[in-house]
Design a protein around this nucleic acid. Structure first.
Lengths: 195, 195
DNA sequence: CTCCTTTGTGTACACTTGTTCACTAACTTA
DNA sequence: TAAGTTAGTGAACAAGTGTACACAAAGGAG
Protein backbone atom coordinates (compact mmCIF):
# COMPACT_ATOMS: atom_id res chain seq x y z
CA UNK A 1 0.00 0.00 0.00
CA UNK A 2 1.36 3.35 -0.98
CA UNK A 3 2.21 5.95 1.60
CA UNK A 4 -0.33 8.56 0.61
CA UNK A 5 -2.94 5.83 0.56
CA UNK A 6 -2.11 5.04 4.17
CA UNK A 7 -2.24 8.70 5.06
CA UNK A 8 -5.66 9.10 3.47
CA UNK A 9 -6.73 6.07 5.48
CA UNK A 10 -5.80 7.41 8.92
CA UNK A 11 -7.18 10.78 7.88
CA UNK A 12 -10.49 9.10 7.21
CA UNK A 13 -10.12 7.19 10.49
CA UNK A 14 -9.83 10.51 12.32
CA UNK A 15 -12.90 11.97 10.64
CA UNK A 16 -14.90 8.78 11.21
CA UNK A 17 -13.73 8.80 14.80
CA UNK A 18 -15.26 12.25 15.28
CA UNK A 19 -18.49 11.14 13.64
CA UNK A 20 -18.51 8.05 15.84
CA UNK A 21 -18.25 10.15 18.98
CA UNK A 22 -21.12 12.31 17.74
CA UNK A 23 -23.17 9.20 17.11
CA UNK A 24 -22.46 8.19 20.71
CA UNK A 25 -24.20 11.35 21.82
CA UNK A 26 -21.39 13.85 22.15
CA UNK A 27 -21.56 17.38 20.83
CA UNK A 28 -18.90 18.30 18.29
CA UNK A 29 -18.06 21.48 20.23
CA UNK A 30 -16.52 19.56 23.05
CA UNK A 31 -14.99 16.62 21.37
CA UNK A 32 -11.31 16.92 22.11
CA UNK A 33 -8.47 16.39 19.70
CA UNK A 34 -7.06 13.72 21.99
CA UNK A 35 -10.32 11.85 22.17
CA UNK A 36 -10.57 11.79 18.39
CA UNK A 37 -7.01 10.54 18.08
CA UNK A 38 -7.46 7.85 20.71
CA UNK A 39 -10.72 6.69 19.15
CA UNK A 40 -8.98 6.49 15.78
CA UNK A 41 -6.24 4.31 17.27
CA UNK A 42 -3.60 6.94 16.83
CA UNK A 43 -1.43 9.03 19.14
CA UNK A 44 -2.56 12.66 19.77
CA UNK A 45 0.41 14.28 18.07
CA UNK A 46 -0.33 12.35 14.93
CA UNK A 47 -3.51 14.37 14.57
CA UNK A 48 -1.45 17.38 13.47
CA UNK A 49 -0.18 15.52 10.40
CA UNK A 50 -3.70 15.81 9.01
CA UNK A 51 -5.46 18.77 10.57
CA UNK A 52 -4.30 21.91 12.28
CA UNK A 53 -7.08 21.68 14.86
CA UNK A 54 -10.62 20.43 15.39
CA UNK A 55 -12.03 23.34 13.43
CA UNK A 56 -10.19 22.22 10.31
CA UNK A 57 -11.43 18.66 10.81
CA UNK A 58 -14.91 20.11 11.08
CA UNK A 59 -14.52 21.99 7.81
CA UNK A 60 -13.47 18.75 6.15
CA UNK A 61 -16.55 17.03 7.54
CA UNK A 62 -18.64 19.74 5.93
CA UNK A 63 -16.83 18.95 2.71
CA UNK A 64 -17.75 15.31 3.11
CA UNK A 65 -21.33 16.43 3.55
CA UNK A 66 -21.09 18.44 0.36
CA UNK A 67 -19.77 15.48 -1.59
CA UNK A 68 -22.56 13.30 -0.25
CA UNK A 69 -25.16 15.80 -1.42
CA UNK A 70 -23.61 15.98 -4.87
CA UNK A 71 -23.86 12.21 -5.11
CA UNK A 72 -27.52 12.33 -4.10
CA UNK A 73 -28.13 14.99 -6.71
CA UNK A 74 -26.69 12.88 -9.48
CA UNK A 75 -28.80 9.98 -8.26
CA UNK A 76 -31.91 12.11 -8.52
CA UNK A 77 -30.97 13.38 -11.96
CA UNK A 78 -30.35 9.88 -13.22
CA UNK A 79 -33.83 8.91 -12.03
CA UNK A 80 -36.84 9.37 -14.21
CA UNK A 81 -37.59 12.92 -15.16
CA UNK A 82 -41.10 12.61 -13.81
CA UNK A 83 -40.03 11.97 -10.23
CA UNK A 84 -42.73 12.51 -7.63
CA UNK A 85 -42.29 14.63 -4.52
CA UNK A 86 -42.70 11.58 -2.32
CA UNK A 87 -39.99 9.69 -4.16
CA UNK A 88 -37.74 12.70 -3.91
CA UNK A 89 -38.25 12.95 -0.17
CA UNK A 90 -37.65 9.24 0.21
CA UNK A 91 -34.22 9.67 -1.32
CA UNK A 92 -33.32 12.47 1.07
CA UNK A 93 -34.72 10.76 4.15
CA UNK A 94 -32.83 7.61 3.23
CA UNK A 95 -29.66 9.65 2.84
CA UNK A 96 -30.15 11.04 6.32
CA UNK A 97 -30.83 7.69 7.95
CA UNK A 98 -27.79 6.24 6.19
CA UNK A 99 -25.55 9.03 7.49
CA UNK A 100 -27.06 10.11 10.78
CA UNK A 101 -23.82 11.28 12.37
CA UNK A 102 -22.87 13.47 9.45
CA UNK A 103 -26.25 15.20 9.36
CA UNK A 104 -26.27 15.48 13.13
CA UNK A 105 -22.86 17.12 12.96
CA UNK A 106 -24.20 19.64 10.46
CA UNK A 107 -27.21 20.41 12.59
CA UNK A 108 -25.07 20.78 15.72
CA UNK A 109 -22.55 23.05 14.06
CA UNK A 110 -25.05 25.48 12.64
CA UNK A 111 -24.54 27.12 16.03
CA UNK A 112 -20.82 26.43 16.17
CA UNK A 113 -18.53 28.90 17.92
CA UNK A 114 -16.34 29.05 14.80
CA UNK A 115 -17.89 31.46 12.38
CA UNK A 116 -16.15 29.89 9.39
CA UNK A 117 -17.89 26.63 10.18
CA UNK A 118 -21.22 28.40 10.57
CA UNK A 119 -20.81 30.25 7.29
CA UNK A 120 -19.73 27.20 5.33
CA UNK A 121 -22.68 25.22 6.63
CA UNK A 122 -25.01 28.04 5.81
CA UNK A 123 -23.70 28.07 2.25
CA UNK A 124 -23.97 24.31 2.00
CA UNK A 125 -27.57 24.25 3.20
CA UNK A 126 -28.43 27.09 0.88
CA UNK A 127 -26.92 25.05 -1.93
CA UNK A 128 -29.00 22.09 -0.88
CA UNK A 129 -32.11 24.25 -0.99
CA UNK A 130 -31.11 25.38 -4.46
CA UNK A 131 -30.77 21.80 -5.63
CA UNK A 132 -34.10 20.93 -4.13
CA UNK A 133 -35.70 23.90 -5.82
CA UNK A 134 -34.59 22.82 -9.27
CA UNK A 135 -35.61 19.24 -8.53
CA UNK A 136 -39.03 20.44 -7.43
CA UNK A 137 -39.29 22.38 -10.65
CA UNK A 138 -39.70 19.08 -12.39
CA UNK A 139 -42.54 18.06 -10.12
CA UNK A 140 -44.22 21.48 -10.20
CA UNK A 141 -43.50 22.88 -13.65
CA UNK A 142 -46.26 25.45 -13.38
CA UNK A 143 -44.94 27.04 -10.16
CA UNK A 144 -42.56 29.94 -10.53
CA UNK A 145 -39.01 29.63 -9.29
CA UNK A 146 -39.57 32.71 -7.15
CA UNK A 147 -42.05 30.82 -5.04
CA UNK A 148 -40.10 27.60 -5.18
CA UNK A 149 -36.88 28.92 -3.67
CA UNK A 150 -38.12 30.02 -0.22
CA UNK A 151 -40.20 26.88 -0.20
CA UNK A 152 -37.26 24.56 -0.57
CA UNK A 153 -35.39 26.53 2.08
CA UNK A 154 -38.23 25.62 4.37
CA UNK A 155 -38.04 21.98 3.42
CA UNK A 156 -34.30 21.93 4.20
CA UNK A 157 -35.12 23.42 7.58
CA UNK A 158 -37.55 20.56 8.14
CA UNK A 159 -35.00 17.96 7.17
CA UNK A 160 -32.39 19.33 9.56
CA UNK A 161 -34.96 19.74 12.30
CA UNK A 162 -35.95 16.12 11.95
CA UNK A 163 -32.33 15.24 12.82
CA UNK A 164 -32.89 16.24 16.41
CA UNK A 165 -35.76 13.79 16.67
CA UNK A 166 -33.62 11.10 15.09
CA UNK A 167 -31.12 11.71 17.88
CA UNK A 168 -33.76 10.97 20.49
CA UNK A 169 -35.30 8.22 18.43
CA UNK A 170 -33.70 5.38 20.35
CA UNK A 171 -33.89 7.18 23.69
CA UNK A 172 -37.60 7.88 23.42
CA UNK A 173 -38.49 4.69 21.61
CA UNK A 174 -40.09 6.64 18.82
CA UNK A 175 -40.15 4.69 15.61
CA UNK A 176 -38.49 6.29 12.67
CA UNK A 177 -41.69 6.03 10.68
CA UNK A 178 -43.37 8.54 12.98
CA UNK A 179 -40.59 11.02 12.42
CA UNK A 180 -40.93 10.63 8.69
CA UNK A 181 -44.69 10.97 9.06
CA UNK A 182 -44.32 14.26 10.90
CA UNK A 183 -41.88 15.41 8.26
CA UNK A 184 -44.36 14.59 5.53
CA UNK A 185 -47.12 16.36 7.43
CA UNK A 186 -45.01 19.51 7.70
CA UNK A 187 -44.12 19.36 4.04
CA UNK A 188 -47.76 18.75 3.23
CA UNK A 189 -48.54 22.13 4.75
CA UNK A 190 -46.03 23.64 2.38
CA UNK A 191 -46.93 21.79 -0.75
CA UNK A 192 -50.55 22.72 -0.14
CA UNK A 193 -49.48 26.22 -0.98
CA UNK A 194 -48.51 24.98 -4.41
CA UNK A 195 -51.76 23.48 -5.51
CA UNK B 1 -30.47 42.82 52.46
CA UNK B 2 -31.73 39.43 53.56
CA UNK B 3 -29.62 36.36 53.08
CA UNK B 4 -31.89 34.52 50.69
CA UNK B 5 -32.12 37.73 48.68
CA UNK B 6 -28.33 37.74 48.35
CA UNK B 7 -28.37 34.09 47.39
CA UNK B 8 -30.94 34.70 44.67
CA UNK B 9 -28.73 37.53 43.48
CA UNK B 10 -25.56 35.49 42.98
CA UNK B 11 -27.67 32.73 41.54
CA UNK B 12 -28.90 35.16 38.94
CA UNK B 13 -25.32 36.39 38.49
CA UNK B 14 -24.26 32.84 37.64
CA UNK B 15 -27.04 32.39 35.11
CA UNK B 16 -26.40 35.79 33.56
CA UNK B 17 -22.72 34.94 33.45
CA UNK B 18 -23.47 31.89 31.33
CA UNK B 19 -25.70 33.92 29.04
CA UNK B 20 -22.98 36.55 28.77
CA UNK B 21 -20.45 33.97 27.67
CA UNK B 22 -22.91 32.71 25.07
CA UNK B 23 -23.41 36.26 23.84
CA UNK B 24 -19.63 36.52 23.48
CA UNK B 25 -19.81 33.67 20.99
CA UNK B 26 -19.25 30.59 23.11
CA UNK B 27 -21.30 27.44 22.86
CA UNK B 28 -23.09 26.37 26.02
CA UNK B 29 -21.75 22.82 25.65
CA UNK B 30 -18.23 23.88 26.46
CA UNK B 31 -18.71 26.64 28.90
CA UNK B 32 -17.03 25.44 32.05
CA UNK B 33 -18.31 25.71 35.57
CA UNK B 34 -15.17 27.61 36.53
CA UNK B 35 -15.57 30.08 33.72
CA UNK B 36 -19.12 30.80 34.75
CA UNK B 37 -18.09 31.28 38.36
CA UNK B 38 -15.18 33.55 37.51
CA UNK B 39 -17.33 35.62 35.15
CA UNK B 40 -19.89 35.97 37.92
CA UNK B 41 -17.23 37.23 40.32
CA UNK B 42 -17.45 34.19 42.51
CA UNK B 43 -15.15 31.35 43.44
CA UNK B 44 -15.70 27.99 41.63
CA UNK B 45 -16.75 26.09 44.72
CA UNK B 46 -19.48 28.63 45.35
CA UNK B 47 -21.19 27.40 42.19
CA UNK B 48 -22.26 24.25 44.01
CA UNK B 49 -24.33 26.23 46.50
CA UNK B 50 -26.72 26.95 43.63
CA UNK B 51 -26.45 24.23 41.00
CA UNK B 52 -25.21 20.68 41.02
CA UNK B 53 -23.58 21.08 37.63
CA UNK B 54 -23.85 22.98 34.35
CA UNK B 55 -26.73 20.79 33.23
CA UNK B 56 -28.83 21.97 36.15
CA UNK B 57 -27.95 25.58 35.39
CA UNK B 58 -29.03 24.91 31.82
CA UNK B 59 -32.37 23.54 32.95
CA UNK B 60 -32.89 26.69 35.00
CA UNK B 61 -32.12 28.80 31.94
CA UNK B 62 -34.83 26.90 30.10
CA UNK B 63 -37.13 27.78 32.96
CA UNK B 64 -36.23 31.44 32.56
CA UNK B 65 -37.10 31.05 28.90
CA UNK B 66 -40.44 29.58 29.84
CA UNK B 67 -41.22 32.45 32.18
CA UNK B 68 -40.30 34.94 29.47
CA UNK B 69 -42.69 33.29 27.05
CA UNK B 70 -45.48 33.34 29.59
CA UNK B 71 -44.95 37.08 30.02
CA UNK B 72 -45.11 37.57 26.26
CA UNK B 73 -48.30 35.58 26.12
CA UNK B 74 -49.98 37.75 28.71
CA UNK B 75 -48.81 40.81 26.78
CA UNK B 76 -50.44 39.46 23.65
CA UNK B 77 -53.65 38.60 25.45
CA UNK B 78 -53.87 42.05 26.99
CA UNK B 79 -53.57 43.54 23.49
CA UNK B 80 -56.60 44.08 21.33
CA UNK B 81 -58.46 40.98 20.36
CA UNK B 82 -58.16 41.85 16.68
CA UNK B 83 -54.36 41.66 16.65
CA UNK B 84 -52.83 41.33 13.18
CA UNK B 85 -50.29 38.70 12.23
CA UNK B 86 -47.65 41.36 11.64
CA UNK B 87 -48.19 42.88 15.06
CA UNK B 88 -47.98 39.44 16.61
CA UNK B 89 -44.70 38.72 14.88
CA UNK B 90 -43.35 42.09 15.90
CA UNK B 91 -43.87 41.18 19.51
CA UNK B 92 -42.01 37.89 19.14
CA UNK B 93 -39.17 39.37 17.09
CA UNK B 94 -38.77 42.11 19.66
CA UNK B 95 -38.68 39.53 22.42
CA UNK B 96 -35.88 37.74 20.60
CA UNK B 97 -33.81 40.86 19.96
CA UNK B 98 -34.24 41.85 23.60
CA UNK B 99 -33.02 38.47 24.83
CA UNK B 100 -30.62 37.23 22.16
CA UNK B 101 -28.47 35.16 24.49
CA UNK B 102 -31.40 33.29 25.98
CA UNK B 103 -32.86 32.39 22.58
CA UNK B 104 -29.41 31.51 21.29
CA UNK B 105 -28.96 29.22 24.26
CA UNK B 106 -32.22 27.48 23.43
CA UNK B 107 -31.27 27.07 19.79
CA UNK B 108 -27.82 25.75 20.73
CA UNK B 109 -29.13 23.27 23.25
CA UNK B 110 -31.73 21.69 20.99
CA UNK B 111 -28.78 19.47 20.10
CA UNK B 112 -27.43 19.30 23.65
CA UNK B 113 -25.68 16.15 24.81
CA UNK B 114 -27.98 16.02 27.85
CA UNK B 115 -31.21 14.42 26.84
CA UNK B 116 -33.14 16.02 29.69
CA UNK B 117 -32.19 19.43 28.32
CA UNK B 118 -33.19 18.40 24.81
CA UNK B 119 -36.54 17.06 25.97
CA UNK B 120 -37.36 20.07 28.11
CA UNK B 121 -36.56 22.41 25.24
CA UNK B 122 -38.64 20.33 22.88
CA UNK B 123 -41.58 20.58 25.26
CA UNK B 124 -41.06 24.30 25.70
CA UNK B 125 -40.96 24.97 21.95
CA UNK B 126 -44.00 22.78 21.46
CA UNK B 127 -45.73 24.86 24.10
CA UNK B 128 -44.70 28.01 22.28
CA UNK B 129 -46.18 26.63 19.08
CA UNK B 130 -49.37 25.89 20.97
CA UNK B 131 -49.58 29.45 22.24
CA UNK B 132 -48.94 30.77 18.78
CA UNK B 133 -51.64 28.55 17.36
CA UNK B 134 -54.29 29.90 19.68
CA UNK B 135 -53.11 33.44 19.05
CA UNK B 136 -53.33 32.87 15.32
CA UNK B 137 -56.85 31.57 15.80
CA UNK B 138 -57.85 35.13 16.51
CA UNK B 139 -56.30 36.37 13.28
CA UNK B 140 -57.63 33.48 11.20
CA UNK B 141 -60.95 32.52 12.77
CA UNK B 142 -62.04 30.61 9.69
CA UNK B 143 -59.03 28.31 9.63
CA UNK B 144 -59.33 25.03 11.49
CA UNK B 145 -57.09 24.33 14.44
CA UNK B 146 -55.96 21.15 12.73
CA UNK B 147 -54.26 23.18 10.05
CA UNK B 148 -53.11 25.88 12.44
CA UNK B 149 -51.10 23.64 14.73
CA UNK B 150 -48.51 22.29 12.28
CA UNK B 151 -48.36 25.77 10.84
CA UNK B 152 -47.32 27.41 14.08
CA UNK B 153 -44.78 24.66 14.64
CA UNK B 154 -43.26 25.80 11.39
CA UNK B 155 -43.27 29.42 12.48
CA UNK B 156 -41.48 28.51 15.69
CA UNK B 157 -38.89 26.70 13.58
CA UNK B 158 -38.42 29.90 11.60
CA UNK B 159 -38.02 32.01 14.70
CA UNK B 160 -35.35 29.72 16.14
CA UNK B 161 -33.63 29.46 12.79
CA UNK B 162 -33.44 33.23 12.54
CA UNK B 163 -31.42 33.15 15.79
CA UNK B 164 -28.44 31.75 13.93
CA UNK B 165 -28.48 34.69 11.56
CA UNK B 166 -28.75 37.06 14.50
CA UNK B 167 -25.58 35.48 15.83
CA UNK B 168 -23.74 36.37 12.62
CA UNK B 169 -25.48 39.67 12.28
CA UNK B 170 -22.60 41.75 13.57
CA UNK B 171 -19.97 39.51 12.02
CA UNK B 172 -21.46 39.69 8.55
CA UNK B 173 -22.68 43.26 8.80
CA UNK B 174 -26.17 42.17 7.90
CA UNK B 175 -28.72 44.57 9.25
CA UNK B 176 -31.33 43.11 11.48
CA UNK B 177 -34.05 44.39 9.20
CA UNK B 178 -32.95 41.99 6.48
CA UNK B 179 -33.22 39.07 8.86
CA UNK B 180 -36.69 40.12 9.83
CA UNK B 181 -37.51 40.57 6.15
CA UNK B 182 -36.42 37.03 5.37
CA UNK B 183 -38.41 35.79 8.31
CA UNK B 184 -41.49 37.57 7.04
CA UNK B 185 -40.92 36.19 3.57
CA UNK B 186 -40.78 32.66 4.94
CA UNK B 187 -43.87 33.19 6.99
CA UNK B 188 -45.51 34.72 3.96
CA UNK B 189 -45.10 31.42 2.20
CA UNK B 190 -46.91 29.79 5.06
CA UNK B 191 -49.68 32.28 5.53
CA UNK B 192 -50.34 32.10 1.79
CA UNK B 193 -51.60 28.62 2.49
CA UNK B 194 -54.25 30.14 4.74
CA UNK B 195 -55.88 32.51 2.30
C1' DC C 1 21.74 0.55 -2.43
C1' DT C 2 21.54 5.20 -0.29
C1' DC C 3 19.62 9.31 1.17
C1' DC C 4 15.74 12.02 2.14
C1' DT C 5 11.12 12.79 3.13
C1' DT C 6 7.33 11.99 6.00
C1' DT C 7 3.81 9.44 8.90
C1' DG C 8 3.39 8.00 13.37
C1' DT C 9 5.57 7.53 18.34
C1' DG C 10 6.76 8.85 23.18
C1' DT C 11 7.87 12.15 26.47
C1' DA C 12 7.18 16.37 28.43
C1' DC C 13 5.08 20.79 29.87
C1' DA C 14 1.93 24.26 31.21
C1' DC C 15 -2.76 24.90 31.66
C1' DT C 16 -7.72 24.10 32.62
C1' DT C 17 -11.12 21.18 34.25
C1' DG C 18 -14.49 19.21 38.07
C1' DT C 19 -14.67 18.22 42.81
C1' DT C 20 -13.09 17.62 47.84
C1' DC C 21 -12.38 19.62 52.25
C1' DA C 22 -11.77 22.56 56.15
C1' DC C 23 -12.56 27.23 57.17
C1' DT C 24 -14.56 32.03 57.87
C1' DA C 25 -17.91 35.49 58.41
C1' DA C 26 -22.35 37.01 58.56
C1' DC C 27 -27.33 36.53 58.71
C1' DT C 28 -31.16 34.11 61.34
C1' DT C 29 -33.27 32.42 65.14
C1' DA C 30 -34.10 31.29 69.72
C1' DT D 1 -26.97 38.12 73.50
C1' DA D 2 -25.74 33.35 72.26
C1' DA D 3 -25.95 29.49 69.21
C1' DG D 4 -26.59 27.67 64.84
C1' DT D 5 -27.12 27.73 59.96
C1' DT D 6 -25.03 28.68 55.55
C1' DA D 7 -23.23 31.48 51.40
C1' DG D 8 -18.79 32.23 49.99
C1' DT D 9 -13.46 31.37 50.47
C1' DG D 10 -8.95 29.20 49.46
C1' DA D 11 -5.94 25.44 49.02
C1' DA D 12 -5.42 21.06 47.05
C1' DC D 13 -5.84 17.07 43.90
C1' DA D 14 -6.33 13.92 40.02
C1' DA D 15 -7.60 13.95 35.43
C1' DG D 16 -7.79 15.76 30.92
C1' DT D 17 -6.49 19.36 27.59
C1' DG D 18 -3.57 21.46 23.49
C1' DT D 19 0.94 21.64 21.84
C1' DA D 20 6.21 21.26 21.28
C1' DC D 21 10.06 18.42 20.67
C1' DA D 22 13.24 14.80 19.41
C1' DC D 23 13.03 10.39 17.61
C1' DA D 24 12.00 5.95 14.80
C1' DA D 25 10.75 3.46 10.81
C1' DA D 26 9.41 2.88 6.38
C1' DG D 27 8.17 4.42 1.62
C1' DG D 28 10.02 7.15 -2.47
C1' DA D 29 13.54 9.14 -5.46
C1' DG D 30 18.12 9.36 -7.16
Amino acid sequence: MSREERKRQTRKALMDSALGLIEQGQHFSNISLREVAKNAGVVPTSFYRHFQDMEELGLNLIDEFSVLLRRVRSDVLSAEQTITVDALLDIYVETITDNPALFMFIQQCRTSEHQEIRNTIRQELQGLAGELASELRVAFPNVSRQRLTPLSQVVVLFLMDAMIDVLDQTALGVEQSRIVARLLEQIGVISAALK
